[in-house]
């Protein structure tokens, strides 16, 4: 691949900021004003914030920095998988309980950092059980080993 000094990232990012800022301003216009409102009201501050963001987005798109070095495609895919794993962890922590959910996610993240299967499985098992006891019984966190689907 040629190492041309590209700046697509910032152009795209600036454009994204513009879109989000416009959406933000549009929803700020929907904010209900109270009856006994103060001179500033509920909308002014969001308007100021949205406008500055809009200006920043335009400026970034117009005057972009050079691209950062993005990871290669396989690494990008790993990061995507890690994101999915953490999302799954967030969703399954309550129904499955800490130990199963933590086992899957920590084994997966460990594998994504260094792909060695047995090592990752052991890491997942060790961390899930070990940290459960430390967090729950050592520090008194409100987490449950297994979800209601198992316990009842």
């Amino acid at each position: 691949m040629k190492l041309a000094l590209s700046n697509k990232s910032d152009r795209l990012f600036g454009l994204g900021v513009v879109v989000v800022a416009l959406a933000y301003l549009a929803s700020a216009a929907q904010i209900p004003e109270g009856f006994l409102s103060d001179p500033v009201g509920s909308r002014t501050f969001p308007y100021i914030v949205g406008t500055i963001a809009l200006v920043c987005g335009v400026l970034i798109a117009v005057k972009p920095d050079a691209d950062p070095t993005w990871p290669e495609l396989p690494t990008l895919a790993r990061i995507g998988i890690a994101l999915a794993v953490m999302y799954a962890f967030a969703v399954t922590l309550r129904p499955l309980g800490f130990i199963p959910a933590a086992f899957f996610s920590s084994a997966a993240i460990s594998y994504l950092i260094v792909p060695r299967l047995v090592q990752s499985l052991l890491t997942g098992a060790g961390l899930a059980v070990g940290l459960f006891f430390i967090l729950k019984h050592g520090l008194g966190l409100g987490i449950f080993a297994f979800g209601k689907t198992f316990a009842f």
């Binding site: 962890f89 933590a102 920590s106 993240i109 460990s110 990752s120 890491t123 961390l127």
Partner: peptide
């Protein structure tokens, strides 16, 4: 590979 999964679990827990 041991540290980062651990941090994740502590953060989420």
């Amino acid at each position: 590979w041991l540290l980062l999964p651990g941090i994740t679990l502590v953060a989420y827990g």
